[in-house]
């Protein structure tokens, strides 16, 4: 299934784009991260520090993601 992945912070630089459509085998945040890390191998090292959001909320690694959903990958935050 396809999802629309948004990259923030240093992940955007690592992915080479701010967003893209990706085919994922498993419709969960873990499945999205699997697909992202397979395509962008440099993101793999940071995987454990990435939070996943759908809409304006974080979602659990096992949450079900809908077909076509926009999934945001959020690296460690540094506001202020």
């Amino acid at each position: 299934m396809q999802v629309f992945v948004e990259y923030y912070g240093h992940l955007r630089r690592a992915a080479g784009c701010s967003a893209e459509s990706l085919e994922v085998a498993t419709a969960t945040p873990e499945g999205v991260l699997d697909a992202v890390c397979e395509k962008h191998t440099t993101i793999g090292a940071a995987r454990d520090s990435i939070a996943v959001a759908v809409g304006d909320s974080l979602v659990a690694p096992s949450a079900i993601i809908d077909e076509g959903a926009t999934v945001a990958l959020l690296p460690p935050v540094a506001g202020g």
């Binding site: 912070g9 240093h10 630089r13 945040p29 520090s49 990435i50 939070a51 996943v52 759908v54 809409g55 304006d56 909320s57 974080l58 979602v59 659990a60 690694p61 096992s62 949450a63 079900i64 959020l74 690296p75 460690p76 935050v77 540094a78």
Partner: peptide, 20 residues
């Protein structure tokens, strides 16, 4: 360079709700 930050706390595995 991007300034290093603090990882957001993800909901625990098994919690399929959002984490507002």
């Amino acid at each position: 360079e991007f300034v290093p930050g603090v990882p957001l706390k993800q909901p625990p595995i098994g919690d399929e709700s959002s984490f507002a």
